[in-house]
């Protein structure tokens, strides 16, 4: 580092060879008219701000270093990449996993049955999915709430009426809503996959309380959700072998879709944006060369006045 700085200085890049250029700089400087006290004040303010920034940065690094957390490995998702859409067959299987496994405890409040149409289900299938559920509606003429079969416009019903009921049923732990879970956790769908497949026995020295399980990907290691995905725990309607990792992969893809329903449109716009900006860059590069040509090819000659 020092050698490199020395080489740059040696090359004379930072040296001002003549006093005239120094004079020029000082005559163009906007701080020329400042008083000594004002310069000192602004200078010390700059040092203070820089120092505060450095301290904040250093503190942030040290906090991260002290965390005992296992980061999920990056998986080669079929929707990774600049132009890759979601795998909708996988999203559909993921809905089956959510419906038959996750929905026992986790809500999906922000997804309505109409959202499934054209993404994972046809309209008839989505209507049939909705009609399986009894939705609380009302009040009727007598002021009572009543149950009715679901419609396309209904949101996916939650397993518990409120957070307190969910906590009471789960040893005080709250199963989070899964609608935006891949955006709400570090690592996104990689984290969901690692968490669902990462259960194993607690190592020696880790004490788990009643109703807790060990999962290294969960911060702290003690998670109140039991392992729920095993080989063949459900049967896929399209005949895909339902191994535990397949189930976890499909439900992670499904939750990626629930969190980012605009995913495919975004990737489609990516193609268009790259295309149009390539054209615009070429046009503006040409225009710049064209407009500057006369200036760049100009020669300036200095002729001292002869006495």
């Amino acid at each position: 580092m020092a050698a490199r700085v020395g080489r740059i200085c040696g090359a004379g890049l930072f040296k001002s060879n003549t006093t005239s250029s120094l004079n020029q700089i000082s005559s163009y400087s906007t701080t020329r008219d400042w008083s000594r006290g004002r310069k000192a004040l602004v200078g010390s303010l700059g040092i203070l701000a820089g120092g505060a920034g450095a301290i904040i940065f250093a503190l942030d690094r040290s906090v991260r270093a002290s965390e005992l957390e296992l980061h999920p490995p990056k998986n080669p998702w079929s929707h990774n990449g600049w132009f890759d859409s979601l795998d909708h067959a996988s999203v559909r299987r993921g809905y089956e996993v959510y419906k038959q496994v996750c929905s026992a405890c986790h809500s999906l409040r922000f997804i309505a049955y109409r959202n499934l149409v054209g993404v994972t289900h046809t309209e008839e299938e989505a209507k049939a999915e909705a009609e399986e559920q009894m939705i609380t509606d009302g009040p009727d003429e007598a002021g009572n709430m009543f149950k009715r079969p679901g419609k396309l416009s209904d949101y996916i019903p939650s397993p518990y009426p409120n957070e307190e009921a969910a906590r009471a049923a789960n040893n005080g732990a709250y199963p989070p809503d899964l609608s935006y879970i891949t955006l709400a956790r570090h690592g996104g769908e990689d984290y969901i996959f690692a968490l669902l497949t990462g259960y194993h026995d607690a190592p020696a020295g880790i004490a788990l309380r009643e109703g807790q399980y060990f999962n290294p990907y969960f911060v702290g290691g003690a998670i109140s959700m039991a392992q729920s995905l095993y080989n063949e725990v459900i049967e896929y309607s399209d005949g895909t072998p339902a191994s535990a990792s397949q189930l976890a992969k499909d439900v992670s893809t499904f939750l990626k879709w629930t969190a980012e329903p605009e995913f495919d449109d975004r990737k489609r716009m990516m193609v268009k944006a790259i295309g149009i900006f390539t054209i615009l860059t070429m046009v503006s590069y040409y225009a710049k060369r064209f407009k500057w040509a006369s200036l760049k090819t100009r020669k300036i000659e200095f002729k001292p006045k002869s006495k």
Binding site: T122, K267, K272
Partner: peptide
């Protein structure tokens, strides 16, 4: 033309993954 070209590229790049490619299996 540009939209059509981009959509054609996107659809061929993601052949078999999008809903329009698999909806024939269900309806």
């Amino acid at each position: 033309g540009f939209d059509l070209g981009c959509d054609t590229f996107f659809d061929s790049y993601n052949k078999g993954k999008q809903w329009k490619d698999i909806k024939g299996n269900y309806s």
